[in-house]
Design a binder for these strands. Structure first.
Lengths: 238, 238
DNA sequence: CGGGTGATTGAACTGCTTCAAAACATGTGG
DNA sequence: CCACATGTTTTGAAGCAGTTCAATCACCCG
């Protein structure tokens, strides 16, 4: 696996949704500068506070981006990025030099394309189609983040977990992450995840076997997830 | 007050931090297209779900951008934008057509410069310096938002209120917004704001007289706000 | 002076947190 | 193949912050 491989880099760049709308000619200069890097599970891409001089584009595997809060007692996973997704996009392009979050590889062969920040900025800002695509991607990301956090603030764990199950376990037997990872994603602690999953199981909403789930009662889960946008207890009729 | 006034528009545009780095020549075409609009307190700029074909730049007064959650039982203020700040920036530039939030004027003479979205997009994407400045501004905004919401999720009301007081009531007698507005900003309900303010008063941390506050014990408030980043109850030694 | 808005207080309740311990799984070395 | 050590999941139980409903109080305005 050659660290520099312009052809593969160009292929990856042109398939990434962030750079959609750019012509191969626009991406060529970036591909020439990119190098591939392979990580093992748990390996650190960068830490919060690091200077950000590189942009990462996931090629295979996945990367977890998270922040540590509560004086180190708690982790909040911001996103988990899979293939063709950008890591550190906002930080690098927005010029926020110290990285605002940590990033580690989640799977054992995780390969990322590393692009020098300065070159990316220059290319992006100078190419209208690229600038538009990147801004759109950042905006989309921001909207997701906003929705996620709004859910964290205003809806209860049951709703968030139901939503998670609907989104990720829709396809039959689905392997759950560990309770700790789920907790970091949902903004709570492993104990609560365990309790809520048990509750759903007892209600017959899901089938649980080891770390595999299967959704049994989709309509009820949807009701719990609050299709209307999280009415919570305000919804109970009286 | 003439609705169209290219000279004033240009002046405003070139002083706005979002467009910093652009030459007057770059901004000229936008200024020519802008129209001013004056609003009264409570007047709606746009509602969540509206098609966003206009970008707003606050000229005077202030605009509150907020979302309605919990099935309409609760409001969360995302930002309050003062002069030279952009409203609807992410939505318009990112191409998320239906507005993701509501926006209303907070003060009675609030004047905004309205710019047609399509023209702004074209100008921004086609001008490298502008694209860079705008992306940086959006990224900064996103970082603020992230910090705000993270605080909402992981720190307690006392911490958030203390932080608010330190930030906004630093200068002597400071006029507080109504408890409802404060609640929308802090992500809670008016009752809790009242209770916490009362508690701070009883502890001798602040002086309260009508809607005016004065910080009496700054060090203690800073301790409560959790300088270290919100350790919450995890901090108490044992 | 009455009426309406916002502020305050009371009280019951819910969901989350935290600490702690038990149950279970998984891998290691004897 | 068992015994042990380690880590994760599950369950228990006490406590607290925030929510909600509701009632009272203070103030401003005409």
């Amino acid at each position: 696996m050659n660290p520099a491989d312009p052809a593969r880099a160009l292929e990856l760049l042109s398939r990434s949704p962030v750079f959609r709308g750019a012509s191969p000619a626009d991406l060529q200069p970036l591909a020439a500068l990119g190098t591939f890097r392979t990580l093992r599970r748990g390996e650190v891409l960068f830490r919060a506070g690091d200077a950000l001089d590189t942009l990462f584009l996931v090629s295979s595997g996945s990367v977890r981006v998270y922040r540590v809060v509560r004086g180190g007692t708690r982790e909040l996973t911001l996103h988990v990025e899979g293939p063709r997704q950008l890591v550190a996009g906002v930080g690098v392009l927005g010029g926020s030099d110290p990285a605002p979050a940590h990033a580690v590889a989640l799977q054992t062969p995780t390969e990322v394309l590393c692009l020098p920040a300065a070159a990316v900025r220059e290319q992006v800002f100078g190419t209208p189609a690229l600038a538009a695509a990147v801004i759109a991607a950042l905006a989309r990301r921001q909207a997701e983040l906003l929705a996620r956090l709004e859910g964290l603030v205003f809806s209860e764990l049951g709703e968030r977990l139901a939503a998670y199950l609907l989104e990720h376990a829709a396809d039959d037997p689905h392997a759950l992450p560990t309770n700790s990872d789920l907790a970091a994603l949902l903004g709570t602690v492993p104990e609560l995840v365990s309790r809520k999953l048990g509750e759903f199981y007892r209600l017959g909403l899901i089938q649980l076997e080891r770390r595999r789930v299967r959704v049994l009662d989709r309509p009820e889960l949807e009701r719990l997830a609050g299709r209307t946008g999280g009415e919570g207890r305000a919804s109970d009729p009286r």
